[in-house]
Design a protein around this nucleic acid. Structure first.
Lengths: 207, 207, 207, 207
DNA sequence: TATGAATGAGTATTCATTCAT
DNA sequence: GATGAATGAATACTCATTCAT
């Protein structure tokens, strides 16, 4: 929706985004009704539709904002670092730090990934982050510091580790973000160096 | 619901479970209505509530069945293998094989993880699998084949890698399950051996 | 909506159609809400959507039924009459009689004609009736009893006269249907014989 | 609403009337929202309620304006013509010409006739036009050029023919206004001369 | 005069669940 | 075991109107 907003309008809009993000994270997207959002803010229902064309649009906006925030944090973190492996490490640490501070958004990412409507948008953001990582991985390979392999796949592996450890160690067990980051970094950098496996690749078990 | 079912009753019930699982995976849990399920099977609504007390109960049952299936596959795969690292590898490969053949369930796991109601049940299953892996990891550490660390955390890291690669490489890019397994195994075994990182652990960036 | 209805179901459905037709006629289609319809019948809201997919569908169904009823009446009226002009007259009289007894439907026709969504359906019915009349008119022309001209246009002229006189004389002034029919027939049969006009055709006033 | 308007105010008001009339005709009165009207003109909502107390008031105003316009056209057309039948003919021709050039208003008349709220106003205008015609008809009867009968009823019959032929021939089939007028005049003048019917008046079919 | 913001009752429709047969 | 019918609270969204500035 394109609307010229006054200062007051911008504030209202931000209020809505923030409050809704919190409720969505806490209660789920579907179970959170528009009525709940507006009455939680003590405003009329029309207010919601003055700022957003639909509940879906609001969610997409929240998602976009969160992705932007995470990405900025990552970029800021690796600025000035030249070593590709170090850049990867810094990226992982920055992501975990950001997620620790934005638990709501992490939950929203989780949900978005499970709905056909939102998953593509989420993937878009993931792909950008993974492509970034892949560039560093490529550089690491060229420098002989990382085993040859598909850089994008390795980037996704890092994403998988990070998300799972954040969910379990950080949010479920309440561990310290830095220790979670240590564990993630250690596993990922080890993973990047690879290991051929006990069972010869190709000698797969029968279907 | 506990009901003594005739043979025909059992078939009906299974039909419902199977059909619903497919629709839930395809369309989402919330967007799929009970009406849609029963009319898709050409039966009346009473049938549904004869076998299940609620839509939620049905979903839980589907989830439980899927977890049971995955677990059995994993157990079967490692039976007879004594080496702990090989057991881990076999477990990873078995999981990926099973997920490749049960895409619907993978999607359902995703969704379950995003709803407060179902997440605990999902975690339960994950914890069992992770505990299994952790035992092998512990054994690997004792044998000096795996770097010291928190076995459960490492187990979760493996889970994270596996799920992400399955989603992206297998389902999104359509790669061959065996090649996906190769990539996952390689990354995970490397990860288990760890790598101390370029930046000294503990020397974290400022919050 | 295709549904196997029990006897009770058919009754309910008929109830809904009848009641809604009355309310639509009395109050207008838009101003009459689904809530009003169901609560007027003392049933839950779901009942409405058990029988109809939408308010619009219900209206279309009402419209179709009314058109069918009018048409049947017209057909029955002219059965057995061979003279084309007499057939026209009988058709006019039958229409007016039917409209007098189905005032609600007349009002609904009026409304339908004013909404882009429903107008085409209405025109379809009108066209059928006009085509019927046009056949008789054609026959009348061939017999030299009606002036040459476009039969369809003449049929529409008859329709226009009939509807307007029904609205004004019958419904507004409350005149007797037979007298209204007399006036309509007289005007229409005169109109069919035509009159060249005082001002020469073609000598049109300036735009 | 009575407000002393500046020149600019009058222009704004006219803009609103014109634009709204077009949207109402195109899209229907109910489906066209005030928001749509003001945003279509690129102004705020306050503007609307500065000039009109309600959407309904605006519609009434549009209707009144249209009726005034049509009436003026009719009056101008018959000015200077003394023969009553010719006056009728000129009136019909003028009406059709005006409707051809004001299709939007024709549609609005249609709608107004179908809503209890607006119908009385519409009838008022119709009655004026019919009364006019009735005077000429009366004169024609006195001069023996038109069959005896109820002049008002005959006036309405003319109105019915005109409206229907305009809708079908002019708007639906896109015929030339002059040819439509020829057909209408011919039918109406014929109708005024009447025809006793094949079936004896009074010998009505059974109810 | 005009704007953007807000109101809140109202709308059509959905849907998990229950009921009578 | 199974059906069609019914429930009614809930949902997302609309819109004529009002208000503060």
């Amino acid at each position: 929706m394109q609307r010229r907003l006054t200062k007051r309008g911008i504030e209202r809009r931000d209020q809505l985004v923030e409050f809704a993000a919190h409720r969505f994270a806490e209660n789920g997207y579907h179970p959170t009704s528009v009525t709940e959002i507006v009455s939680g803010l003590g405003v009329g229902k029309g207010v919601f539709y003055w700022y957003f064309t639909s509940k879906e649009e609001l969610f997409v906006e929240i998602l976009r904002g969160a992705q932007r925030g995470l990405r900025r944090t990552q970029e800021k973190a690796i600025t000035g670092e030249g070593d590709p492996v170090a850049r990867i490490e810094l990226g992982i640490r920055a992501s975990i730090r950001w997620l620790a501070e934005n638990r709501d958004y992490f939950t929203l990412f989780q949900f978005a990934s499970s709905e056909e409507r939102f998953a593509p948008l989420l993937r878009l953001g993931e792909d950008v982050a993974v492509a970034d990582a892949a560039r560093h991985i490529r550089a690491g390979m060229d420098a002989g510091r990382i085993d040859e392999g598909d850089p994008a796949a390795l980037g996704h592996a890092i994403l998988g580790v990070t998300n799972q450890l954040v969910r379990i160690l950080l949010f479920e067990k309440g561990e310290d973000p830095n220790r979670v980051a240590d564990a993630a970094v250690r596993f990922c950098l080890g993973g990047l160096r690879g290991f051929s496996g006990v069972i010869a690749a190709g000698a797969h078990s029968p279907a």
